[in-house]
């Protein structure tokens, strides 16, 4: 079960997180906190015509939250806000209840990378680690000054 959580891909993204950094000329930005464990992420977006042209983030946290942010950045780049919003709900279900909670059609629509994080569904205390980046991204679309806090 534990090897499910710390898969090769997770360790790789934790060691070499992709798209880390800041976008000074961002159109959207959001800070997300998980006060329980102190994980923090700031997401920067450049959105044009409802398409995420570029995404970067600055984060500090555990291997799961770091890998999740890294994988998210790869998935979100080039996608429409609408698409990411729909995807986010399905991904959250995967984190919470595992991939078997989805229909075959839903599974087929998921980016395969996300399945590396499916293991968190067996570790309820770690679901928040995986979902922080996605919640923060979702809130970033609203573009207000309020930080996202996981409660």
């Amino acid at each position: 079960m534990l090897s499910n959580l710390y898969q090769e891909m997770i360790l790789d993204h934790n060691n070499n997180p992709r798209n880390q950094g800041q976008l000074v000329n961002n159109t959207h930005t959001k800070i997300g906190h998980n006060p329980l464990c102190g994980d923090k992420i700031e997401v920067f977006l450049i959105v044009e015509n409802e398409i995420i042209k570029d995404i970067k983030y600055a984060s500090s946290g555990c291997a799961i939250s770091t890998a999740s942010a890294s994988i998210m950045s790869l998935i979100a780049k080039g996608k429409s806000i609408q698409h990411i919003k729909e995807l986010k709900d399905k991904i959250h279900k995967v984190f919470l209840k595992g991939v078997t909670s989805l229909s075959q059609e839903e599974i087929d629509s998921l980016p395969p990378k996300i399945l590396a994080l499916e293991g968190v569904s067996n570790f309820p205390a770690r679901v928040k680690c995986a979902s922080l980046a996605w919640h923060t991204l979702d809130c970033a679309f609203e573009n207000n000054n309020q930080a996202y806090t996981d409660e």
């Binding site: 079960m1 534990l2 959580l5 710390y6 464990c37 994980d39 946290g61 555990c62 291997a63 799961i64 770091t66 570790f123 205390a125 770690r126 680690c129």
Partner: peptide
């Protein structure tokens, strides 16, 4: 460099 939460989860297992 291992984050304490990862240590906690692995010890928990």
């Amino acid at each position: 460099n291992i984050h304490p939460h990862d240590i906690g989860s692995i010890l928990d297992s």
